[in-house]
């Protein structure tokens, strides 16, 4: 029993390392060859986990081999568009300028139910609200709304918006992130002032976020969020 426990732990740790090395795409939207590899890895890891007569290497070596193959295929795909098309296929335009392309749907064995489901998942309940809908190679449906139903933007309103900056997490679950403080050029004095104003200690804070303009919010572990504004230029 201990053998099985130790094998499972070892294989789990190595799988974590391999999935981490394979990159974020393995965890998100998968291309067909990535889906194959992910499914295979799960099966291969199970083989030596419970069967003690089989050496651990019989599960790990195929996993390492898949990682090497995955990297090799990814590199070739990145370099050659033709190979990428062969491996992943091409996106297909299902709705073209407001019109559903039935021929493309038939070719993909796609039904109107599938199309409507994809549109609803994107927040559109009628094809007449959509200008273009593209079925991506990973099976996701990308939707561009028609001009009538597209959300208004500053560009369409011909308005100059306020500049946008990236908010940074300064305190997360009671832990101070000094690296982000440096990026914001925030001093300890400014941080202490914010905490004193809200009668909090670093450990009491669930989340403190600030953007480069000094706007953000703070929420304690037991309280409600409070908007804050700091002049990050001052020390």
């Amino acid at each position: 029993m201990l053998t099985v426990f130790l094998r499972a732990t070892l294989i789990y740790v190595i799988l974590l390392v391999i999935m981490r090395l394979m990159g974020k795409r393995q965890l998100g939207q998968l291309q067909p060859f990535e889906l194959v590899i992910t499914l295979l890895i799960a099966e291969l890891a199970c083989i030596p986990m419970a069967e003690t007569a089989i050496p651990v290497s019989y599960g790990l070596i195929p996993i390492f081999t898949l990682f090497v193959l995955h990297l090799f295929i990814t590199k070739i795909s990145a370099r050659f568009i033709g190979f990428r098309r062969l491996l992943n296929g091409k996106p297909a335009v299902i709705i073209n300028n407001g019109e559903i392309d039935y021929k493309v749907m038939k070719k993909l064995d796609m039904t109107t139910n599938d199309l409507m489901e994809g549109l609803r998942n994107s927040g559109y309940f009628s094809p007449e609200d959509v200008a273009y809908a593209i079925l991506e190679t990973n099976g996701q449906l990308s939707v561009m709304p028609s001009a009538k139903t597209a959300p208004l933007t500053a560009k369409t309103m011909n308005v100059e918006p306020a500049s946008q900056t990236l908010p940074y997490t300064v305190i997360s679950e009671g832990k101070l992130l000094t690296g982000n403080m440096k990026l914001l050029k925030m001093s300890d004095g400014q941080l202490n002032a914010v905490l004193r104003e809200n009668k909090l200690d670093v450990n009491d804070v669930l989340l403190l976020m600030l953007d480069e303009n000094g706007s953000g919010f703070i929420q304690s572990k037991v309280g409600s969020p409070i908007s804050i504004n700091i002049n990050l230029g001052e020390q």
Binding site: L21, G23, S57, F64, F67, V68
Partner: peptide, 17 residues
């Protein structure tokens, strides 16, 4: 980094084999 790991794994697998 991934390429280096991949080469190391490949060499180890072939060597071990």
């Amino acid at each position: 980094k991934r390429t280096v790991f991949a080469i190391i794994f490949l060499v180890m697998i072939i060597g071990f084999g």
